[in-house]
Write a protein that binds this DNA or RNA. Sequence first.
DNA 1: AACGAGGACAACCGCTGTCCC
DNA 2: GGGGACAGCGGTTGTCCTCGT
Length: 215
Amino acid sequence: MQKIMDKKPCNSSQDPEVRKGPWTMEEDLILINYIANHGEGVWNSLAKAAGLKRTGKSCRLRWLNYLRPDVRRGNITPEEQLLIMELHAKWGNRWSKIAKHLPGRTDNEIKNFWRTRIQKHIKQVDNPNQQNYQPQMSLDINDHHHSSSSQVSNIVEPMETYSPTSYHQQGTLEPFPTQFPIINDHQSSCCTNDNNTNNYWSMEDIWSMQLLNGD
DNA sequence: AACGAGGACAACCGCTGTCCC
DNA sequence: GGGGACAGCGGTTGTCCTCGT
């Protein structure tokens, strides 16, 4: 049906007026301001009414994944990791469904987390003799969460087949001790405005600006 | 210090589902 | 019932950053 609409490359890329790529601070502020004043919904008309040269789709994604005040970013906790694995074992790649059980987490973030950390790890475990395999992270959650469901153990099991390094050595409950960039720190340090992309700055910055603007 | 490779994340794309006329 | 518009989802790609050489 509406594929007709979407077939036209995002019905927008042909339109020189439609911006793509990273959002700028100005665009973010416009979107935040508009939603603060008018609420979300009807994204296509919202984008137009707000004066953003973006598709409604793009605005929705930006708001849901980044700008919403209740979005939590970075530092996925061991408990969240466990939950993700448990729910993924139950539902598969139903990221939005999984995200609903992790308050403040977005489906995109969970999906990225799964693909970059867990899936990679599973691949490594599947091909342990591939090149000089070096386990980089531990997902040996069951060792520390004996209450885990059998569903979890199904998916976690392969990960127990190697001996985690720093995790056990450090005796902490940090499944990915060396793998987790502290995203909040990263963003708050690198994301102040001297970054030439204008795309990386903390949400605290945005929301404080928002407050300063008096909206 | 420079450069390349790989990782992490943001954003886009294509598709499906749902609602409304 | 058919078709259009929109929201939402999952997969993929692009970009930036970090780390190793």
